[in-house]
């Protein structure tokens, strides 16, 4: 009975709701295309090839496997017809889930300070992802 009397911060409830939804979607989007990938369908990086070089640093791995140097998220978005790159969309979704949760919590904050702090964290979060995608 007493449990019902707990006052939960409205910011927390909004944050939790968005996080639940996008975590489920992110895991599903990551796992579903990986099934055909492991069965050998439509691979951007063939598993036989990958296994020869996965002990190398990322730079050498990509040089040997695809003959490219990876900078940013282009390798995912320009190869979305391949199952392994589709699986990476799920990882991207999981990565932005805390950002979406923070944005959802902002309107529910009862103090200006928390609106600003969450907005600052969300901007840092977004900028760091965009910068990494460009570099």
């Amino acid at each position: 009975m007493e449990e019902r009397k707990i006052s939960v911060d409205p910011m927390a409830l909004a944050f939790a709701k968005v996080m639940t939804v996008f975590t489920i979607i992110g895991i599903a989007v990551m796992v579903a295309p990986s099934i055909p990938y492991f069965m050998g369908y439509n691979q951007y990086i063939s598993l036989q090839m990958a296994s020869k070089y996965w002990n190398e640093s990322t730079v050498n791995f990509w040089k040997h496997v695809k003959g490219i140097t990876v900078h940013g998220y282009d390798w995912i978005f320009t190869n979305l017809e391949y199952t392994d790159c589709q699986s990476m969309i799920g990882v991207l979704l999981l990565m932005i889930t805390p950002l979406l949760s923070m944005i959802a919590a902002i309107p529910k904050a009862d103090q200006k300070a928390f609106k600003l702090l969450l907005l600052l964290a969300a901007i840092e979060f977004a900028v760091s992802m965009i910068v990494k995608g460009i570099l």
């Binding site: 990986s34 990958a50 900078h71 998220y73 699986s87 990882v91 990565m95 805390p98 840092e124 992802m129």
Partner: peptide
Amino acid sequence: ITANAPAIGIYLAKGAVLPVVVV
């Protein structure tokens, strides 16, 4: 720990995330 999520972008952007390891 969820605030560490943007660091995943560093690994994705360098091609250091492979489905064969992650999934």
